[in-house]
């Protein structure tokens, strides 16, 4: 429910098939698919250069661009009611919040007067194993405590 629901529409939308206002021709969607494919090629070839910043931009920046295109043109969220936007954005924001509040504990392995011994041991063991061979076969380490 939202402020938008204030007005009683009362139309019988339930049986209908969504937006009758503007039907795009199939070629419109094929063009968008073409753009998406080009972006896919860029996102795969970009990281091959081996430059970190370009990897980040091409891999993750383009993922957001692709997502935006799919949302806008395939899911037609641009012509949807704002309430849908609010609901989707809210859930995404909550996930960002979750990441922001949890990452100090899980992502970092030490901080003010605390240290995650088990995670540090795991990192050290993995890096040492990785120097020898890429497998990183896991061997159970002795029980370590999290302070």
């Amino acid at each position: 429910m939202s402020a938008e629901a204030t007005h009683d529409h009362g139309h019988d939308h339930g049986a209908g098939g969504g937006h009758h206002e503007h039907i795009h021709p199939p070629s419109h969607y094929v063009k968008i698919w073409g753009v998406l494919c080009v972006l896919l090629v860029v996102s795969v070839t970009g990281p091959m250069l081996g430059i970190k910043i370009i990897t980040l931009i091409t891999a993750f920046g383009i993922a957001f661009v692709k997502a935006g295109i799919v949302i806008k043109y395939f899911m037609h969220l641009d012509t949807e009611k704002p309430i849908i936007w609010y609901a989707l954005i809210t859930s995404v924001v909550f996930m960002v919040l979750f990441f922001a509040a949890v990452s100090p504990d899980v992502m970092k392995h030490e901080g003010t007067r605390w240290e995650n011994v088990a995670a540090k041991a795991e990192v050290a063991r993995g890096l040492a194993a990785g120097a020898e061979h890429g497998g990183g076969e896991h061997e159970p380490a002795p029980a370590a405590e999290v302070h």
């Binding site: 979750f98 949890v102 504990d105 995650n116 896991h138 159970p140 380490a141 029980a143 405590e145 999290v146």
Partner: peptide, 21 residues
């Protein structure tokens, strides 16, 4: 798998966050 058991390299605090969120 080793998501949450520190003996196997996991992080039990993550479960606490997932649970209490």
């Amino acid at each position: 798998t080793n998501f949450f058991d520190p003996r196997r390299g996991g992080d039990p605090i993550l479960w606490q966050h997932l649970f209490w969120f």
